[in-house]
Design a protein around this nucleic acid. Sequence first.
DNA 1: ATGGCCATCGCGGATGGA
Length: 277
Amino acid sequence: MKLATWNVNSLTVRLPQVLDWLAAQAEAGAPIDVLALQELKMTDDKFPAQAFSDAGYHAQWFGQKTYNGVALLSRQPLTATVKNLPGLPDEQARVLTATVPLTRTPAVGGDTQPPAGDATLRVIGAYFPNGQAPGSDKFAYKMQWLQAMHAWVQQELATHPHLVLMGDFNITFDDADVWDPDGMREAIHCTTEERRHLQALVALGLHDSVRLFPQPEKNYSWWDYREFAFRRNRGLRIDHVLISDALKPLAQACAVDKLPRNNERPSDHAPVVLTLA
DNA sequence: ATGGCCATCGCGGATGGA
């Protein structure tokens, strides 16, 4: 089973790339089962549900005009969908939570192995606020939002042991996630305060999937459009896939897929892909 | 170098992103 997150920076512009990428994964023999998308930048009536349906995906979406917007795509039906964070009234469309069947990859010549316990996976796809700059109103909103996300994950974990929280977190874990850690010391995405909130989420019983596996040096998921930042690999790792304790034994691989960043009109983010047994 | 790019809205240039 493969899960992925991708901030597409306008689904209107990037839809062909998303469809091509999904098709390429399937052709390689390991289709993406669940994909969380961020920054749709479209109202709900513009969501390309038919195109995804034709590609074999169920979809749930939660958009707004111009900014933000998130979606979940799944090869199996999505149920029990929740929009945004209960307890935090918010005009901004940033979170989509849903349940999918937890499907196990059949062993060669063997039967599909159902996992012990419940056979569902709770998926939280999220576009965390940017925060602009420490001390700004937007930073204060980010801190409030992170507190509400913490409460939501805690609540959901209590009833869904198999849980994944993935998306554009807009927070680096530590200096290894930053191309210029000295130049970005206590800058947005790198402040101690943001990182404390990220660690508080991890402390609920989650694991940074990427760090469970050996990675290339300077392993980033976002690169500025300016200054040839991608070619020079001047980036940040701010897109994450966090998995619960119960899922950790099923994790087989996790990596950033930089290929879509080579497209002619790429998103500034690359997808992050987790493979589960 | 107080920037450089990209998307949106909408038709100029501001806003937001990260």
